[in-house]
Design a protein around this nucleic acid. Structure first.
Lengths: 201, 201
DNA sequence: CAGATGACAGATTTCAATATCTGTCATCTG
DNA sequence: CAGATGACAGATATTGAAATCTGTCATCTG
C-alpha cells in the first residue's frame, strides 16, 4: 500500500499489523497482508517476528500495555483508597468495554490469545493485579482496608470482577443492567476490604 | 435402535435426545438421529417439540433442574449462614465442574444455550439466585449477615463467583490454583456480607 | 555482508458441488 | 380420528479439489 523507503523496523511492522487486524480481524489477517501493506515481501516480516503467533502476541501486548499504563495513573493518586479502588475498577471496565466496541477485530484477537492462555495475557493480568495490590496495600497502610495478604485480596477482587473485564464476558457488557450489577459487586467487595473500625461507606 | 412398542412420550424423546447429545455433541446431533434412536420417524418427534431448538432447551432444562434441586437441599439446612453459603457455592462449583468433566457434550449444549441468552438459562440463573437470596435473607434474620437488599446482595455474590460456575470459564476450572482462588473470593464476599457486630470468621 | 527477496514444501483455508438436515403437510393406519 | 409417516422445499453441513498461507532458505542487492 505505502511502500516507504524508510527502514523496516519491528515498530513499523506492528503498526501495519494492527491496521490489518483492525480491517480483517484475527481470522482473516495474514502475514502476507501485513507485508503487502508495508510494500515488502513476507520474508522480511519473518526476519523480525519468528512466527505469525509471535507477531499477533506482540501487537496484543502493545495494545494491552496502553491500557495498563492508563490505569497505572490512577494507582498513585492521593485520594481515599476506597475511591481509588472503585475508580480503578471502573476505568478497567470502561477501557475493556470501549476496546470491545471500538476495535472489535483487535478485541477478538485479544480474546483468541486469552483463550490460548498466552503468556502475554498472563503478563497483562499480572500487571493489573500488581496495580490492584498496590491500591490495597496503600489502603491497609492508611487504615482504610483490612487484609492479611494484600496480594491475595487483590487477586480475589480481580477475579470477582471478572464479569466486567474478562473478554469471555464481552457479549454481556451491553445488557441494560450491567452498570448496577457492577456497582453491587464493587460495593460488596469494598465492604469486605473495609477495616473493622471504618464501618461507614 | 430400540423400536419399542411403548407410546412415544415427551419424556422418552428427552431421554433419547440426552443420549444422542451425549454421544454426538450439540454440533452434530440431529433430530433425525433422535428419531432413529427411538425407532420412529422424525416427523413424530416434531409432534412433541415444535423445533430442534425447543428440544435442545427442554433437555438442558431437565439437566439444569437436577442441579438446582440438589442445591436446594442445602438452603434449608439448620447451620450457620456462613457455612451454608460457603457450602452452597462449593456445591454449585462442584456440580458445574463435574458436569463439564463427565458430560462434556451435554455441557457444550448448555454453553451454547448460555451464549444464545436462552430463557432456559435465565430461568436457571433466576432459580439459583433465589436460593442464594433465601440463604442471605436467613442470615440477616439470624443476625449473621448485614444486607439492605438481600436479593441484590445475592445477585452480587452470584456474579462475583461467576468465574467458578459460568460455562464461559469452564476451560479454566482445571488449573492448579482454582481451589484457593475460590476460597479467597468466597472469604472476601463473606467478609462483605458479615454483620458489623460479628467481625470474627 | 546485512538485509531483502521470492520460490518452495507442507499446512490451512476457500469454494462450489453434493449430501444431509429441518420443519411442513398431505396421506396413511390402527 | 389421533397419532404416525415420509416426500418435499429450503436451509445448513460436508467434502474434496484448488487456492492461499506459513515458515524456510538459497540467492540477490545496495
Amino acid at each position: 500500500m505505502a511502500p516507504t523507503t524508510e527502514t523496516l523496523t519491528a515498530e513499523r511492522i506492528l503498526e501495519a499489523t494492527e491496521e490489518v487486524l483492525r480491517r480483517h480481524g484475527p481470522a482473516k489477517a495474514t502475514v502476507v497482508d501485513v507485508a503487502r501493506a508495508l510494500g515488502v515481501s513476507h520474508g522480511s516480516v519473518y526476519r523480525h517476528f519468528r512466527t505469525k503467533a509471535a507477531l499477533r502476541e506482540a501487537v496484543t501486548k502493545r495494545w494491552l500495555d496502553r491500557t495498563a499504563l492508563r490505569l497505572s495513573a490512577i494507582v498513585g493518586q492521593d485520594r481515599a483508597p476506597e475511591t481509588l479502588l472503585r475508580e480503578w475498577l471502573e476505568a478497567l471496565f470502561d477501557a475493556k468495554r470501549r476496546k470491545a466496541g471500538d476495535d472489535p477485530e483487535l478485541f477478538a484477537t485479544f480474546s483468541v490469545l486469552a483463550d490460548e492462555n498466552s503468556g502475554v495475557v498472563d503478563q497483562h493480568i499480572a500487571e493489573l493485579t500488581a496495580q490492584l495490590t498496590e491500591i490495597v496495600r496503600n489502603g491497609v497502610a492508611q487504615g482504610a482496608f483490612t487484609a492479611t495478604d494484600p496480594a491475595l485480596a487483590a487477586r480475589a477482587v480481580f477475579q470477582a470482577t471478572g464479569r466486567f473485564h474478562d473478554p469471555a464476558y464481552a457479549s454481556r457488557w451491553l445488557r441494560p443492567h450491567v452498570r448496577s450489577e457492577f456497582d453491587a459487586v464493587v460495593d460488596l467487595l469494598l465492604r469486605g476490604l473495609r477495616a473493622a473500625d471504618h464501618p461507614a461507606g
